[in-house]
Write a protein that binds this DNA or RNA. Structure first.
Length: 400
RNA sequence: GCAGGGGUGGUCGAGUGGUUAAUGGCACCGGGCUGUAAACCCGGCGGGUUCACACCCUACGUAGGUUCGAAUCCUACCCCCUGCA
């Protein structure tokens, strides 16, 4: 008798439950085939198969305890290429990370690569930033690559309109994104049936297949945002992302969109705000009901000399820290703050030592992840507004 | 001692009569960074006054000189490098 029962075949790729809610803010559990993630969650960005300047052991360590990280379709597709990653057993095995992976679709590169790309209905032609060769990425290609990568959460291939896009321009872009979303869904489902997913793993009572998230676009136009959301909900996804923010628009526009859109998104599915943001941004978005975040700020800024702290941002390059024996953040318990002074970190940075990047990245990630721990705890205990208020008040302290 | 080369702003190094406060690099100082073309990018960098436009000082080893004008030419001196004694 066939082993696959009806209940097996309808087992979902993901499960999401909300354990606590305070106003719009939610604390929940996202169960994936590779692990359980407490939300709201911050996901460090690991574009090219590495969260830059930090080892996987440290990401897994109690000091950071990152449950999920990102990878990028566009970058990994260009280098090392799909064949290599397939041959090495998928992205998890290739990079040596057994926890949850989410891959971005390459859609963001459609926007960020500017002159190096050309968009058509079919997809996007890219001039590779690696070797200048012409490459073509489409919803189908993106889904194929992400299946080969075997990430646990796959993002639909979208097009991000510029932050200040007009209504007409945005409407076109949202239309294209919707058609690409549908094609992503179709290609994704076919690939799952074909077994193309290199990360397939049955666990936690789930189907074992990848999950697919749709992306809402629409720039700063609330009506188009809503229409984009409706179209994605109609197509059906395992989670919904808000894309196209923090791409040059006013911050007030960003929060108008989040505040309006997030509460309208399906309540029983994870809501993911892509590419955001600063610690303050995260708290505000959580207050609007967002569950997942990713951002390059902690890692990139770590490499460029900026440390985040509970007392505000701190530029480690500044001469004022030359002989300062305090840690970056006096109320941080991360390994870097327990061991090293601002004076030493500044010295490392000015000397061009790679350890500066490593230590600042570690601290920044610790700060972001720890902040989210505090957020989750405060939502569960019903103290989120207080947590947020106190957190925000302390951020001014460095502005001496 | 003789011959040759050379002494430029924190540093290395361009510049050999006319927008030269003096190209560049580095160092230094400051800023930026939001689904990573990013261990990157941008700005400042002799001193003083000014919100600013602007103005005034001081500067190319030292001291003189030539010239309308000198980092650039001449003289003397000091110092460094190379070769020969």
């Amino acid at each position: 008798m066939a082993h696959v029962t009806k209940s097996d075949s309808v087992a979902p790729p993901l499960r999401f439950s909300i354990d606590a809610q305070q106003d719009e803010a939610r604390a929940g559990l996202l169960t994936t085939r590779r692990g359980v993630i407490e939300t709201p969650v911050f996901m460090p960005v690991g574009t090219a198969g590495t969260v830059k300047a930090i080892r996987f052991e440290e990401l897994e360590s109690p000091d950071l305890d990152a449950r999920i990280i990102l990878g990028n379709t566009y970058h990994l597709w260009l280098r090392p290429g799909v064949e290599t990653i397939k041959a090495c057993g998928g992205l998890h095995r290739f990079i040596g990370w057994n926890r949850v992976l989410l891959t971005d679709s390459g859609g963001f590169q459609v926007w960020s690569l500017g002159d190096l790309r050309k968009i058509s209905e079919e997809g996007t032609a890219f001039r590779s930033h690696v070797d200048g060769s012409l490459q073509f990425l489409s919803p189908e290609v993106s889904m194929e690559v992400q299946a080969a990568l075997g990430s646990d959460i796959v993002m639909a291939f979208d097009e991000c309109a510029p932050g200040d896009a007009s209504h007409e321009q945005t409407e076109r872009s949202v239309g294209l994104t919707a058609r690409w979303a549908k094609r992503s869904r179709v290609a994704f489902d076919r690939l799952q049936i074909e077994g193309a997913d290199k990360g397939y793993q049955v666990a936690n009572g789930l189907s074992g297949s990848q999950a697919l998230f749709g992306i809402v676009q629409g720039a700063g136009h609330l009506d188009l945002r809503k229409s984009s959301l409706d179209q994605n909900v109609a197509i059906g996804f395992d989670g919904h992302a808000i894309g196209g923010l923090s791409v040059g628009e006013e911050k007030s526009t960003m929060f108008d969109v989040i505040g309006d859109l997030a509460p309208q998104m399906p309540k029983d599915q994870p809501r993911y705000l892509m590419g955001v943001g600063t610690p303050e941004d995260l708290l505000e978005a959580v207050a609007c009901g967002v569950d997942m975040f990713d951002c390059v700020l902690p890692t990139r800024n770590g490499r460029t000399g900026q440390a985040f702290s509970s007392a505000g941002k701190l530029n480690i390059k500044n001469a004022r820290w030359a002989q300062d024996t305090r840690p970056i953040d006096e109320s941080c318990h991360c390994l870097v703050c327990r061991r090293h002074t601002r004076a030493y970190l500044r010295h490392l940075y000015l000397a061009g030592e790679m350890l500066a990047s490593i230590l600042l990245t570690h601290h920044n990630l610790a700060f972001f992840l720890d902040t989210m721990r505090g957020v989750r705890q405060s939502i569960r205990s019903g103290d989120f507004p207080k947590f947020r208020r106190e957190f925000t008040e302390r951020l001014g302290a460095n502005g001496e």
